[in-house]
Design a protein around this nucleic acid. Structure first.
Lengths: 196, 196, 196, 196
DNA sequence: TATGAATGAGGCTTCATTCAT
DNA sequence: TATGAATGAAGCCTCATTCAT
């Protein structure tokens, strides 16, 4: 086969893979693992149902791959936090903004559902274990401590405060905002959770 | 049939109906509509698989009935709000406490899932319409306005503030708290959302 | 539930299980593992396709169960050989008769296919290992040795002779005899394989 | 197109056709009709999945063509029998040797499977009819009769004896010998089937 | 000619629902 | 009323076949 051809085919495979992952992210986030029919993923991706299985061994693997990759991305995002400029308040504000931004929402929703739903493949458990070191909470705690010293944040146990804050942000991300009259709460309203 | 027998049978029917509804509430809240197997509801209720269908025409009807009744209960609860003693802050604090209390949690979760999940029977749409007059938000707004006048709350558009607040409370109720190290955020942390 | 009822239900379950196993034995023996459609097993058994799965977890398990049980039966049969009356020639003649008798044929065919076909579930490997001690060949060897001493059999390496004999008997059992004008070879023709 | 090119293309077509048939013979013999995946045939032949369909209309046609051609070859082989030197015993010994020789085994296995398996395309039925005149048995019978006259063979009904003998040889050819400790039975052991 | 991406019919399996007892 | 065996529609997945390149 000519290298030109090979390149073109690789491109097609990449495109399809991404199409499927994009569609799957949307549908899984919306309907959950069980609620997601492969036929729906296929039609969202604009391909036939069978083609999915040329790219992923099973619905399970598609789901697991998605989670794995989203966790990897989340890790990068979180590592970036360390180098952010500004006060603790500003850092957390930026993080929050990223989490609730429309382009990341589905990803957060999916990870949340994967963590909480009961009907999800067991293979994701080791994935979450693998990334536990990049746990948002562990990263937030020192920032919150510093913020507390500066008087920017409330004086609860910093780990508990971080945990609750993250829990709330995650919880609202899981919702379908389209149905809400005013959309998601504004960042500054959310930041009050941390304040005195 | 003797009236005595009739009475006894009626009692049995009532008992069974309640057993099934109680089991269904728990299972639906945990697994969602699609994720819930009627066989699991039956075994949770301690009855045979077929019996559910002597009391409810279908899984769909069981779900819809549950939602209908929970909405009715929620309505009473909300009407009670008007007669609560104390400042606006205290009133909302009490409401919040009820919403996130363990005994009501499943009910809130289920209503939330019914509102948000995509895989739910369409028959519930008119139910939510029917109770829109008892919308939590409409009831909260005047309380918040009063609270703002008293300086207890932040000065955003009161309807928007109420909407966001309710949205957040609902969102966190939907989560499975058991997996959280620190449980649900404390009421007072949540109340900060409304504060200046 | 009344004990009477329980008994009746147990009877039904036993009957169904046997119906399914009987049908499956016939169809698996005829079409092989892959060639067997669960729908065909169901219709051969006179039940719906879904019911199979109330009695067996999967086509795989149905197949494996069948093999397991047939091996167990074969073991009894073989243990019985030790106590047979008559000369070595008579003993092997009796065994051969059993193997090629119509009522055992499907069982032999199925075991053969399970051993040889490439498309069979891997779970059967340990089953065959488990029964290797009851290997027909090991049992035949001493009988053949004795027969050789008595001049009844040919003087090849007894293990090789047993192996070949068994191989031939098994091979012909696997065929569908219905299509043969003269049916299976007669026992005495087969016994010539062992003779001088 | 130049005649030269035409010639070259014809050569390619012939090569490909043979590659595919050779691969198909091996795979069909091993896995049976249903168990054979066209993708596996393609990779065994070292070509792409789609190319098979430029040379054969379908898996069915590939299979049928193979059977047709193998029958034709078998016919030649059998016609050659008439001109073989030696006693009846020697003639049948030679035939047997050819049948069980490694290079012909796959062909015999495939024909056998085609005759016996239930999951095979119906189109092969007329092929077998077409070659019934060259039926091995019809050819064997006069040789056996002659052998009986010479006292080389047992005195059963010669047609029945031929039929059984062929049946046994065919049956053992179908097996996968690789798994057997001692391989196929030796020719002389097999020939005993015909002897007194 | 040759490739391999794409399709869709059909098989295995689950589970809401019905039915005989 | 209560049971659980039985059904069959619908979902996941495989693979023979087609099609664009």
């Amino acid at each position: 086969m000519s290298p030109l051809n090979r390149k073109k085919l690789d491109k097609i495979r990449d495109e399809r893979t991404n199409q499927i992952k994009k569609a799957a992210l949307k549908i899984f986030a919306r309907y959950g693992y069980l609620g997601t029919k492969t036929s729906l993923v296929a039609s969202e991706a604009g391909i036939s149902e069978g083609l999915i299985y040329k790219y992923f061994k099973s619905k399970d693997e598609l789901f697991t791959t998605l989670i794995q990759e989203l966790m990897e991305e989340a890790k990068s995002e979180l590592e970036g936090l360390y180098h952010l400029e500004g006060s603790p308040f500003d850092q957390i504000r930026t993080l929050t903004k990223n989490m609730i931004s429309e382009e990341n929402r589905d990803a957060f929703v999916l990870i949340q559902r994967a963590r909480k739903d009961e009907d999800v493949p067991e293979k994701i458990i080791p994935i979450f274990k693998q990334y536990s070191a990049y746990n948002l909470i562990d990263i937030l705690v020192p920032i919150i401590v510093k913020g507390q010293e500066l008087g920017e944040f409330s004086n609860e146990d910093p780990r508990k405060l971080a945990s609750w804050y993250f829990f709330i942000i995650n919880s609202i991300c899981i919702q379908e905002v389209e149905k809400e009259e005013y959309g998601l709460p504004s960042i500054d309203v959310l930041m009050r959770i941390l304040k005195k």
